[in-house]
Design a protein around this nucleic acid. Structure first.
Lengths: 223, 223, 223, 223
DNA sequence: TAATAACCGAGACGGTACGTCAAGTCTTCGG
DNA sequence: CCGAAGACTTGACGTACCGTCTCGGTTATTA
């Protein structure tokens, strides 16, 4: 996957890499960022925590950024949504799954670190782009199935719409500084279906659709 | 504003702070990030460029992050949209203005740095939240005016909808790594009006609405 | 004396200098060096302690070095030994007086600071030389009186002998890191009288000559 | 030696320290102090000159002071005087050797820095005491040999006498601000032999004993 | 079975930036 | 003009982190 040139399957001569090192390193990154924040994720700290040497880490990932991308991907990796026969159900599925991933402790910091490292020029720009692209593939698939089914208007631009779908949860997490909750997911599903759907198809859906009930506090526009 | 405790108006005893220092410093940050990227924004470099000493900078902002937040705010500060009588026009106004700000060179890097610094606990967390909140106020105002006019459905949650409006441009910039263009703005206006508008009101708008034509390359769902 | 251009007796126009400032500053230097060591003697710290402003200090002494010299001189200033009619008695007087001064708390640090600042080229080199010269004048006088009396050999070089007299106490203090005690003074008086005296005149002196009895621990060549 | 924990002979795991770094650093200190004075001895300057990184220096010596002590010791390290069979010859040997060391350019500044750093409490106090003690050991040996030979009076206190021997050269250098010359050495040898020797043994020695003739200007007590 | 190649832990290394501190100067107000 | 207060420049300090390199030593595949 991203960063780690782990496809060493040909097995040349010499001592093979120990899987333990790879696993312990990624785990250490997650633990550190969760427990002590982004600033604690030092290569030395990771090495010490994972009981691994720094060269062993750099043999696997070419830079700190690449390592963090790899760690992030264990949390918010690509998703595949089965054909549920209904655009609304599939969008809900995507948003619910992503929301759950984002709610895991430490994920916000991991993503923030990612965003920051991607803004630098020299670095892991390409790897980051790949990562993002993989994360949006699922959404594009859902939208395209919707077009095929006739649920989604044909004049909807897939790329723009995919951005509209993927953006809000991340924005809530990183820009607004809050965990995305069920309430937001419900609202978004409704808004997005209306945005991309056929004018007639925006009918009132299932009554009482609160699924996982993480929290629903703060309902209502005017308090 | 964020970071700089600028309310020094009471004038106690002693030599007052020179406004020149504050201004030159912020300007130097913008110039450096624009011309040479985030990595060039060193405190020493800023000081040298602004012809100012490091202690003078640290007297104003407690850390590099706080300085960067302050610099970012000079770029993407709050916005006020006049009542244009039409939700579609007002949304277009908001997105166009934001898009223009994001397209300024260096802004992406500045925002990325902001996001990263906000994820850390000890630091400028509160200042960052304030900053974001101010940036979303404009959108909430537009939506509320839409409700008042009857253009926006009353059951639309303002907060969720505001997130849906504000998120895509930033996401395009930071996550997808591209500048938001006219194409995206046009698509978003259309999608958002359908998302929040009355079912009937989603009528075909003005024919031929490409306004500023920054770039429109890459049209079409399947390239 | 050294450094302070205090001879402002002509009284030009404007507010006259307050004696309080000069005194409090010197006192603050002594207190700080005594209580907290050399490193605590900061111009800001001195100013704060003396309740005086930095410019007021710099109006009196041109540099930190000059201030420290002035402060040191309040401790180990020049000495005048009356004619006691006997070289041994006069040498004892000189060494006892100096020893007492060196034993005051903080003096070692003050002198060390002096030595260090004198080694720098640009600074208060001349003022320091004057200071040292004044301190050795007393010894030269004593030796010359000894020659006049016929107690000291005429072929003794005054300058070399003066160095031999003045050096040991300071060396014990700064190089060996111990306070000079009565024991050392007694031994030195005996050794120095033999060194400069007429061969016959090196007779056994008064029996039981321990004067002030500060401490006499550690007697005997082989412990 | 002082400061550098050089006894790394056991060779633990990890990359061993490069001797080149240690050597080049000490050399750079000497060169800088010689050519440009104490004020030029900046850690950055030393690092640059030695082509070594600052952390590498701080790995060896805990502070700037410790580094300077170590550098000083390469100049004025301990001395061993062979048994010359004569107290006068041995004293001359000690003083001549020390004098030569003190006359090396930069040594005065190095020693001054040493004295200053020793006056501070927290720092390299112990290392400095050791350094001084080693430097005086040679003198104590000479005196003890003199007692054994019967040249030195048995009631002479070795410690006091050693201070009397060691002090004048350093005092001339640091307090009077002049390089010790042959003249001073000659005078001191004569004075010291009389001070510690048997009353009869203070006979006039070799006639015309000016050895190296570095400078002999300023002879004569009354100009 | 030996050689060889790649791995591993430990830690030193160069480089670069950080945030702090002190010296000495300058600027404002008030006496 | 003096004095208090405090901002200012300059320049060095000691620390932290990144990514690399160098040890001694281990583990597998090849010869």
């Amino acid at each position: 996957m991203a960063g780690a040139q782990t496809q060493r399957t040909e097995r040349g001569p010499g001592r093979p890499r120990q899987e333990r090192v790879t696993d312990a390193t990624l785990e250490a990154v997650i633990e550190l960022v969760t427990e002590q924040g982004v600033k604690a994720v030092t290569m030395d700290a990771v090495a010490a925590r994972a009981k691994v040497s720094k060269p062993a880490i750099y043999r696997r990932w070419p830079s700190k950024q690449a390592l963090i991308i790899a760690a992030a991907e264990t949390r918010v990796g690509p998703l595949s949504v089965p054909d549920l026969g209904d655009i609304r159900a599939e969008l809900r599925e995507v948003l619910t799954a992503r929301s759950a991933a984002y709610r895991l402790p430490g994920t916000a910091r991991l993503l923030a670190e990612l965003v920051a490292s991607a803004a630098e020029e020299g670095g892991a720009r390409g790897e980051y782009a790949d990562f993002t692209d993989r994360m949006m593939a699922e959404t594009r698939t859902v939208l395209q199935r919707g077009i095929a089914r006739g649920e989604v208007r044909v004049d909807v631009d897939i790329r723009s719409a995919a951005t509209l779908v993927a953006a809000p949860l991340v924005y809530r997490l990183l820009a607004e500084g809050e965990l995305p909750n069920t309430r937001l997911v419900d609202d978004l599903v409704d808004l997005l279906v209306r945005a991309v759907g056929q004018p007639a198809a925006a009918a009132p859906p299932e009554p009482g659709n609160v699924t996982s009930g993480i929290d629903t506090a703060g309902r209502g526009n005017k308090p």
